[in-house]
Nucleic acid binder design. Structure first.
Lengths: 109, 109
DNA sequence: CAGAATCCGTCGCGATACTG
DNA sequence: CAGTATCGCGACGGATTCTG
């Protein structure tokens, strides 16, 4: 067996790959992280424009989960009109090689 | 915009990352590919033992999709009892860097 | 502008039983 | 041994409306 097994908060067995999928799996998270990592800081509505087809619900939900997991930073300005900026975090930057590989493989196919 | 956009068979816009997720997304495929890439050729029931909790349906379904996409090879021996061996394909090997990154990141967290 | 809340349909995934 | 077939649930994702 070439894999390392861990136990998650529910006592369920998870290998490293399953852990990674749990954090950045799903339809939107890798694409969101990609844009923040390579296009830089974005406001909420700028993110929407970068993600054709995403709804308010999905965007704010995914952003919140990524923020809770410490993969992105959220900076709120108390202005009128409101302004919020999202950026990749230090921890999120460690995903760059993974995101690059996902992008590279998809491009080469 | 730092991403390249393509069009899939349904005319839907997809970026490279979405393409990759379409091929190896989901709960099981990366783990299956990981084992075939690093533990070598496996028979059907050997795969089951490597994937605690997977059901017949999910295993055969995911294996078939991976085979159709050319990421794994399926070799059937006409013996009694039946014997089928699964292995990583040439194309599947190009996913090694990606799988390694998924594994590395999950391990380091 | 940047969201929260609600409702709802799809389908990914699983349990179980059956087959060559 | 190596699969199919059938059934069903629950989460994921989406449309729409409301709010500070």
């Amino acid at each position: 067996m070439s894999d390392s097994i861990t136990v998650d908060e529910n006592g369920k067995l998870k290998c490293s790959i399953e852990y990674t999928l749990g954090k950045i799996g799903g339809k939107w998270k890798p694409v969101i992280l990609w844009h923040l990592a390579y296009d830089g800081t974005q406001r909420y509505n700028e993110m929407r424009r970068l993600l054709p087809g995403i709804t308010h619900k999905m965007l704010s939900q995914q952003l919140k989960e990524l923020e809770v997991d410490g993969l992105i930073d959220r900076k709120q300005f108390n202005e009128v009109p409101p302004r919020v900026e999202y950026s990749i975090s230090e921890k999120g930057l460690t995903l760059k090689p993974l995101l690059e590989e996902m992008h590279r493989w998809g491009t080469e196919q």
